[in-house]
Amino acid sequence: MDEFEQKGDEVPGAAVTTGALARRLGVSPTTLRSWDRRYGIGPAVRADGRHRRWTPRDVLMVETMCRLASSGVPPAEAARHARQSAGGLPDGTAPPAPAGRPVRARASHAAGALPLGNVRQECRGLARAAVRLDAPAVGERLAAAVEQHGIVIAWQEVMVPTLHAVGRKWASSGDRYIEVEHLLSWHVSTTLRRVASPDAPEALAAAGPVMLACVPGEQHTLAIEALNAGLNELRLPTRMFGAAVPAEALTAAVRRLGPSAVVLWAQARSAATPVLARQVADTRWGVKGARRQPLVMLAGPGWAGRPAPGMSRPTGLKDALDTLASVYGAVAP
């Protein structure tokens, strides 16, 4: 069931509100108002002279605008074609169905035909917003996914499928969709970093934080940002070091912090160096007779097939959170 159907403010054949139409199309209400102001893509009638109510003809027009804009047509030209396409449809009537076929709700094609497959409905709305570079809507949908589902589900079932779909579209279309991937990645990162990071309980903080770092030469950080956000949800102490941390800096940070665990992320196989992992695992600290060393977790596809005796190799975000929580005696949700 679509989000706008759950809200109960859209009835087939009836005029709908701006908020209902925005949810249906995966755009922000601000975008619809901007199109109305700039290009005349808006409702023909306003209730009481103020409140927008979109008739079926108005909906057809804005759906056409979305479809053309997401396919690369300049907004002004897309608006002209959208107005023309809705020009012959009387107010208050739905678009006619082909003869001999049942009338069905008109589906929005505004996602730019991203190869999403069988995914959550949230992915489709997020993809439509990203393709249209609708930053407010992207941010709103990502925040809503985290709030409703938590980090694990939001990451695995909303963020990752949409990121992969954009990546596939970019790979098959030259550089046409690179701006979509950059915008979506930035907003995913922003959403993950906004997850509250309350102070860890004193006993857990005393045990040392989880260090998270990309290995030297590795620039992809979104996955360990998701892990960091998940640890924040569990109120476990963390220290995030981000992309491409030099080997000397990693070992120096281990000695200074005395972490309970170190997560080394490698997206590319060329960046995953078992010698570095062993060097971090063998780093010790503390007084003589009570020296400690961290659990080392090798995360990311770059470590596949690499020898890792005595080191943790999670199968996914949930597995990584469970393993790290167990180090502190905590229980992951």
Rank of each mutant, 00 (worst) to 15 (best):
Pro307Arg: 08
Val27His: 01
Leu212Tyr: 03
Gly208Val: 01
Arg141Thr: 11
Arg120Lys: 05
Arg291Ser: 15
Gly125Met: 00
Ala111Phe: 02
Lys7Ala: 15
Met1Ser: 14
Gly286Tyr: 10
Arg194Gln: 12
Ala308Asn: 14
Thr64Phe: 04
Gln219Val: 11
Cys123Asp: 06
Leu68Trp: 02
Leu295Thr: 13
Val195Ala: 10
Ala308Thr: 12
Val327Glu: 15
Arg38Asp: 11
Thr283Asn: 06
Val158Pro: 01
Leu25Ile: 14
Met1Thr: 13
Ala253Arg: 12
Gly87Ser: 15
Ser28Thr: 06
Pro294Gln: 03
Ala243Gly: 08
Phe241Thr: 10
Arg124Thr: 08
Ala165Cys: 08
Thr17Asn: 03
Ala82Val: 03
Arg255Val: 15
Asp58Pro: 06
Asp48Leu: 12
Leu212Cys: 03
Pro294Arg: 01
Met65Tyr: 03
Ser108Trp: 01
Tyr328Phe: 15
Gly208Glu: 09
Leu21Asn: 10
Thr93Pro: 06
Pro314Trp: 01
Thr191Val: 01
Leu25Ala: 10
Pro95Ile: 09
Met159Val: 01
Gln84Tyr: 03
Leu192Glu: 02
Ala22Gly: 14
Ile224Ser: 03
Pro198Gly: 11
Ala281Trp: 06
Pro237Thr: 10
Gly300Asn: 05
Pro246Gln: 12
Ala94Thr: 10
Leu204Ala: 13
Ser260Met: 12
Leu222Asp: 05
Thr315Ile: 09
Asn232Leu: 04
Val59Leu: 07
Gly92Trp: 00
Ser70Gly: 15
Pro201His: 08
Ala203Cys: 11
Arg194Lys: 12
Ile41Lys: 01
Leu317Phe: 11
Leu116Phe: 09
Ala203Lys: 10
Ser172Tyr: 00
Gly329Met: 07
Thr18Ser: 12
Leu25Ser: 13
Asp36Gln: 11
Arg239Trp: 02
Gly26Trp: 02
Trp285Phe: 07
Pro333Ala: 15
Leu276Gly: 11
Ser185Val: 02
Ser189Asn: 05
Gln6Ser: 15
Gln148Trp: 00
Met211Thr: 08
Ala69Gly: 00
Gln267His: 13
